[in-house]
Design a protein around this nucleic acid. Sequence first.
DNA 1: TTGAAAGCGCTAACAC
DNA 2: GTGTTAGCGCTTTCAA
Lengths: 336, 336
Amino acid sequence: MAATLHDVARLAGVSIKTVSNVINDYEHIRPATRAKVEKAIGELGYTPNLTARNLRSGRTGAIALALPDLSLAYFAELAAQVIHEAEAAGVVVLVEQTGADRERELDLLRSSRLKLTDGLIFSPLGMGPDDVAALDVPYPLVLLGERIFDGPTDHVTMRNVDAARAATEHLIAQGRRRIAVVGAHEGEIVGSAALRLQGYREALDAAGIEYDDSIVGYTTLWHRANGADSMRDILARGAEFDAVFGLNDTLALGAMRVLQEAGLRVPHDVSVIGFDGLDEAAYSIPSLTTVDPGRGWIAKTAVSTLLARIGGKADAAPQTLFADYRILERESSASS
Amino acid sequence: MAATLHDVARLAGVSIKTVSNVINDYEHIRPATRAKVEKAIGELGYTPNLTARNLRSGRTGAIALALPDLSLAYFAELAAQVIHEAEAAGVVVLVEQTGADRERELDLLRSSRLKLTDGLIFSPLGMGPDDVAALDVPYPLVLLGERIFDGPTDHVTMRNVDAARAATEHLIAQGRRRIAVVGAHEGEIVGSAALRLQGYREALDAAGIEYDDSIVGYTTLWHRANGADSMRDILARGAEFDAVFGLNDTLALGAMRVLQEAGLRVPHDVSVIGFDGLDEAAYSIPSLTTVDPGRGWIAKTAVSTLLARIGGKADAAPQTLFADYRILERESSASS
DNA sequence: TTGAAAGCGCTAACAC
DNA sequence: GTGTTAGCGCTTTCAA
């Protein structure tokens, strides 16, 4: 059995309060006493029981991060940054995967497993606006992803519409007029796909280009294979295009592969842009132009916002915070 | 303030023991009593305080997973699988990143942050055999990665040497004799790089091919950029080669890009194989032949082994468990 | 079948 | 400066 405060106190010949004082760096302790206690701690290999401390203090020093799936590169990179920021702030992170499944997301919000943490950073993907009531939870909550809810919580998000419009404008500026889209979601109104598609349409409108559904590819998921399938589908329709906007990088990379298999040159015949600013987009052939939606800032801000709530700012009005985006110009959209 | 057992007991007009019985599905409760209690629970929105329960029971229902960095695809996919398996077993996972830094790894092992968990699955990268003593920790520990220690803990690992030899033999079977290596670690004896390089040399020896250091590229890290740099370095030396063994997939993908930039055709001029069985290796151009080292099995086995230790098998002798590997043959090494 | 009470290990009033 | 003590919310003997 591990040593407790009592054991240390007995060995050192002091009271447990004194030991507690030493552990918590209380100032006014006689050096000799401190030395005695530290010796006893060393001998017993004592370490504080955090569970007991947490029960007493009402804090756990842990936060939860819930996201669809770590094997999706975007979420893996996001998680890496959140954990990094949390560590810098002295808290640990419990990671939950929801599989982008609405039921599992709703379950998680109610789950008592979260009792092990002081708050939650939540990136939902399956829930819709109808589920907004589920966000009214009795613990600090910061939402990531689309602002599809006008919910009662803080929200850290990206400028999807603006960034997607900028991406499309970038292609138009290269002289492209027939811009295909890969990864649209059929009938969606509120998710990332819908918002990015909206930005795309806004850019077309502004440039006087007509929207053409025959060069828009639909998928359900955003894996590489879906990007490839979606691209093959568009090619099979026979419609002409001179550029592709992948609604995320993974889709764009899958699409780029199919283009090259089909003998089309990127960017000469077809210019390609993605979205997310993944590390790997810099290392494809050709390297992929993409939009960095400000993921690093989002991670940092999510952690600091959550910790501020935990630290007592419970009553302040919920805020929505937007990250700045940036186009990362690479070979796949170089002027030809 | 959240409701407690006492509040529920008072409202229901019973003792807290009775409430506790209801919550823990104790069998012998009069239906009327149960109903009363459940009504009170519902009215107060009571949920058990896990911290208190943990303090009492000595268990937390959480395990820790420590790995170098989630933004490395291999570890992201590993973490996804570990969390998945843990969830199936009813425990949550706290993820720590060590950055492959020896000091941080040693700190972590001693850290009291782990007190929040019942045990640790640990994938070290910076520690060496000299640090084996640090593994003698007072909590259940399962090691992943190289078996560089003959330590006091369970170890779930892959057959690095055998799998690397099989990878090399695969290239030799295609008629390749000048097989370059990307990602070796200078002077390393015990890590993945060294073991895989050893398997490579064993395959050469068995085939009567002489080892040639001029076609072995060294890196420190295993990011895509390192694979690219390492490949450029080998090309710059001017030595001839007809195949490349990337010591992991990320390196191989980076190397493949450089080969193609240099005008070399894969697999016609140069055959390429990687190691790790990453999802994305299936979607590169050409798709990358790789070795699946059994990551799924490793995740599952690590979780079940740790939980068995936590569940009382504390005294059993430490085991070392090896995953089976498998060559995934794809375009980058197709017969030409 | 239900109640009373001890105590998990710690913190923080409060006393000396 | 240091000691005493009352809980944090729960589980779990032991009695009733």
